[in-house]
């Protein structure tokens, strides 16, 4: 997987763009994300329906993965079953 790849959830509307990527399975709502939408969308697994917010960046604790949510949805983003957290960026004043 290379940066710039767009991945789609198999269980909700969520879409992400990969900004940084290590080794592991990128998931949404408990199911692996893929470059194509499924014919029949499933539902997020129990406890994995925390939602993905538009424009937020999601990262793992080790800093190996970073995903930008480009379409929001119901599923929680995770890598190998570990839920990702929203990247906390210090707001900067508008410079242009």
């Amino acid at each position: 997987m290379k940066p710039g790849t767009k991945l789609k959830s198999q269980v909700c509307d969520t879409e992400v763009m990969v900004i940084r990527c290590g080794t592991g399975r990128i998931e949404c709502g408990g199911a692996a994300m893929a470059e194509d939408k499924p014919a029949e969308p499933g539902t997020p697994a129990e406890g994995l329906a925390g939602g993905a917010l538009m424009g937020k960046r999601y990262v793992d604790a080790a800093g190996a993965f970073e995903l930008l949510c480009v379409k929001p949805g119901k599923g929680s983003l995770a890598v190998d079953g570990v839920i990702l957290s929203i990247k906390d960026a210090k707001p900067l004043p508008a410079s242009d």
């Binding site: 940066p3 710039g4 538009m54 424009g55 960046r57 960026a89 707001p91 900067l92 508008a94 410079s95």
Partner: peptide, 24 residues
């Protein structure tokens, strides 16, 4: 390159952070 500019914007701007009344 696209990668340079994408990195600059993601690093400095929060998506949809402006109020609807804001104008630049």
């Amino acid at each position: 390159r696209h990668a340079n500019l994408v990195s600059y914007i993601l690093g400095t701007v929060e998506f949809a952070c402006a109020d609807e009344s804001d104008a630049a």
